[in-house]
Design a protein around this nucleic acid. Structure first.
Lengths: 216, 216
DNA sequence: GTATTAATCTCGCTT
DNA sequence: AAGCGAGGTTAATAC
């Protein structure tokens, strides 16, 4: 029954099976019909009949073995064991596209817009301007220094700001305060949660609402 | 050519196609052979020949339409349009298992272990003990109050603690300080990053190394 | 390798 | 519906 399965090939398999995983966590998936996807880079996906997220998976570089009625995928300290009761459908996929997707309107796009319009957004012309400025506590999205040597620290979010974004900014801010810099803190995003807005006010951060940039 | 595709059914489709997405972001995926998965809950996955993550997707509750050579999936303000050049394989999947997976050794398991062994971990017997204690700035994993009315705030991580975990704890800590409580801050995890460990020391947080609990 | 962050994050839970 | 956090997060990027 298992003869047709070639563990070194990309394929899809629809099978009555049961899956066990052991690694960072441990899991069991009860017997049933599941869609198993095997890619040429070692990726393994086990998809159930609902939800986006695979029931089980292995990221790239996993190695698959076939032992009797079992498919075993190993990767570092993570192992998936699929016990096959019945193969319903097996198909090898040829010439599977490996092209990457091209995504726009990301955080980087918004950051680029901010950098290109920094003067009107902040209301002054910085004497120095950095993006992805590295500190020991993470990298600052945009850092603008004015002629009074005040550090304007900008955290950018493409979507709604939650309280986590505020503390991220706070952490960068504290770093610059520790090294004796004067700072001003900004959050720039199209939206903010109510709790985050309270936090912003309390921490004297400045929230600027800027919507997604249209495609250029 | 498109006659066989039934948009209300769960199926897999291997096709030469090109995909455009518009919603929170915008994306284009160049023409090539791609695996398209359609589930009964509306989930749509477009898988390329590498990586775990789908090239494009729609979470549950998306609605699919067929217009000429195009498959269009809509969900709130998000639309995926698949232009089909050629159908290579099409297969409807029957009796697709919707069973959920059962995962162990999660953060909750570690938290339960901590609660059950709180006395030996903290070195005292709390007069009050909470899990998932809600505050306006998030919910505290474990909160133990001692007889001197000091609040022992515990942040639990199943994996390695990064600096983000430290600021999460700090946020809870500041909340209790603001409402005039005496606090002690703990991070419990099997591992911690070096930057996070520096932060822990600076913020006078206590890091306790506790490994995953074995299966019970 | 380690460390950090974005993500069309997804998903579940709680208010 | 909104907000928040875990996740076997994955994937990309910087060091």
């Amino acid at each position: 029954m298992m003869d047709q399965i070639r563990v070194e090939q990309p394929w899809i398999l629809y099978a009555d099976c049961e899956v066990n995983y052991n690694g960072r966590a441990t899991s069991n998936l009860e017997r049933g019909n599941l869609l198993i996807i095997h890619k040429s880079d070692g990726t393994l996906l086990i998809q159930g009949g609902t939800l986006c997220t695979p029931r089980n998976y292995q990221p790239p570089q996993a190695i698959m073995h076939k032992i009797g009625n079992k498919l075993i995928s190993k990767r570092k300290n993570e192992t998936i064991c699929i016990f096959i009761y019945e193969i319903i459908y097996y198909k090898e996929l040829s010439d599977w596209s490996i092209k990457k997707i091209d995504i726009h309107k990301t955080e980087k796009d918004l950051r680029d817009y901010i950098v290109n319009n920094i003067e009107e957004i902040l209301g002054f012309k910085p004497i120095e301007l950095f993006t992805e400025f590295n500190t020991p506590v993470g990298s600052v999205d945009v850092l603008a220094i004015d002629r009074h040597n005040t550090y304007h620290i900008i955290e950018v979010k493409r979507g709604k700001i939650s309280i986590v974004g505020c503390t991220q900014l706070e952490r960068y801010s504290n770093y610059f305060i520790d090294i004796m810099k004067n700072v001003r803190d900004y959050l720039i995003a199209p939206e903010i949660s109510t709790n985050a807005l309270n936090y912003v006010k309390e921490m004297k951060q400045t929230y600027l609402e800027i919507d997604h940039v249209s495609d250029s």
